[in-house]
Design a protein around this nucleic acid. Structure first.
Length: 461
DNA sequence: TCTGGGGTCCTGGGCCAC
DNA sequence: TCTGGTGGCCCAGGACCC
């Protein structure tokens, strides 16, 4: 999909069509997730600090992402892809590899082009958005082709022309070559894909190590036999927060770690997982990042267990000077928990005990663990008590995020154009309407409530 | 107003068992 | 008994991707 988040916003907000739209974190430390093509003309691009984007494009519309809407659109597109082949490998919400051969829908250049054009038409018809298609003999080349096809295009790399096509391109075009590897290669006098091929496998391995160097060399020869993999197993689950202002207070740091641990476990459970290794991530005031991990005896999805492990890990980290980001993750995923094993063991014990007719078998309840209600149990530490106090004091206020959907009892559906100083400005328009009017309300206006994204195509028109 | 969030993979050192 | 090689696991950090 082309400039996916921004395009989705333009499609659902008629007043933004043809305008510079920037989607991303709007806090003081936000970065750009996606910039519309109009915004890119000002030099704004993904991963740019939002402050810099605002300097470059002060008049652009700045919106907070609406992942629910993007996910819905993504599902529509993925469904179209699955009609083409059983082998669809999603890379993100807006990108996927499709093995057309496995789907038996394309067998030569002409049929592949026809499938690509029909897919683009279908995507437009179903979602109202444009997508670009790259056709090639491997995943790497298909990806390069799709980048070249953007926006709203189709590009086919004819088999046999690959090496010639890659030779003059920057090494940065190869997947796996980011700023660091790019610099590394540049210092060795290698700037193009052709130069990687000329340097030879041994030199690449010497420069970048066995795995990375060897892989890059074969990529440079346009050799990529990685298969399209439909189902990928999740290997870790994590949540992290960057704070608007560095946190110095150790109690607050501990409180945030507790909260993150609980959010992480909620996600873990939602995915039907448990995990054995708990990871704490700390980014300090100077942007230095460190991780600490602890591997438990068995997998868990118990919030208290993860919280306590994260708290132990935090004890080994020096946070004086301030903390910019905290994260908690769980890896070593399994589909059972240590508690399950305890439960099984206890059930077996209970059976034995019953068989022995022991009247007082001492089997506890295994189901008491992991209620997930967020109760704080800190083994009586003073810090734990303080954390509980901070938790009690956490405020709950209604916030209006720029770009998010609202509904007004009198004026109907609209979206938040901005808010501040007790006021919220709403533009009343829908995907099927023309550009709408703007009205301002008090932030606590009882007639105003959060709304749901409206479908971009059909329903409302 | 410098630098998000959620992932994956690789490397290299330390430690331990064989 | 001592030493060395090897392989696996754990841990930390770095790079990369979208």
């Amino acid at each position: 999909m082309d400039a996916f988040y921004a395009s989705a916003e333009q499609a659902s907000k008629p007043s933004l069509r043809g305008k510079a739209v920037i989607v991303g974190g709007l806090g003081p430390r936000g970065v750009v997730a996606t910039a519309s093509y109009e915004a890119r003309r000002f030099g704004v691009h993904s991963a740019m600090p939002m402050g810099q984007a605002r300097r470059l494009a002060p008049n652009a519309a700045y919106l907070v992402p609406r992942f629910g809407l993007y996910r819905d659109i993504s599902e529509q597109v993925m469904a179209l892809l699955k009609e083409l082949s059983p082998l669809v490998e999603p890379l993100s919400l807006d990108e996927a590899f499709v093995d057309l051969e496995a789907g038996e829908v394309a067998w030569d250049t002409a049929s592949a082009l026809a499938v690509g054009e029909k897919l683009r038409a279908d995507i437009r018809a179903v979602t109202g958005l444009t997508g670009s298609v790259g056709l090639a003999a491997s995943k790497m080349l298909a990806k390069i082709a799709s980048e070249e096809a953007k926006p709203d295009g189709l590009r086919l790399i004819v088999p046999g022309t690959e090496r010639e096509l890659l030779a003059d391109k920057s090494v940065r075009i190869l997947p796996g070559v980011g700023p660091a590897t790019g610099d590394h290669l540049r210092r060795a006098g290698i700037t193009t894909v052709g130069e990687i091929a000329e340097a030879g496998a041994d030199e690449l391995v010497r420069l970048l190590g066995k795995a990375h160097g060897g892989h890059l060399y074969t990529m440079a020869l346009a050799v990529d036999d990685r298969p399209v993999v439909a189902e990928r197993e999740t290997k870790s689950v994590s949540v992290e927060d960057t704070f608007d202002v560095d946190i110095h207070d150790r109690v607050r740091v501990r409180f945030e770690v507790d909260r993150l641990a609980e959010r992480c476990v909620a996600r873990l459970r939602a995915g039907g997982h448990s995990g054995r290794t708990v990871v704490l991530k700390v980014r300090r005031y100077d942007f230095s990042t460190l991780t600490r991990s602890e591997t438990l005896r068995g997998p868990t999805d118990d919030p208290a267990v993860v919280r306590e492990a994260a708290a132990r890990l935090l004890e080994s980290v020096d946070t004086t000077g301030g903390v910019r980001l905290l994260g908690v993750g769980v890896s070593g995923l399994a589909d059972y928990t240590q508690e399950d094993l305890f439960a099984q063991a206890q059930a077996a014990e209970a059976e034995l005990a019953a068989a022995a007719a022991a009247a007082d078998s001492a089997v506890g309840s295994a189901s008491a663990v992991g209620s997930g209600d967020g109760a704080v149990e800190d083994e009586g530490s003073a810090l734990g008590a303080e954390v509980a106090e901070v938790r009690e004091a956490a405020p709950a206020e209604r916030r209006w995020y720029a770009g998010h959907d609202v509904r007004h009892a009198q004026f109907g559906p609209g979206w938040v154009q901005g808010s501040g100083i007790g006021r919220v400005t709403v533009r009343f328009e829908t995907p099927g309407s023309g550009p709408g009017r703007v009205r301002t309300f008090r932030v606590d206006d009882p007639l105003l409530s959060p709304g749901e994204p409206l479908p971009l195509v059909g329903a409302t028109e």
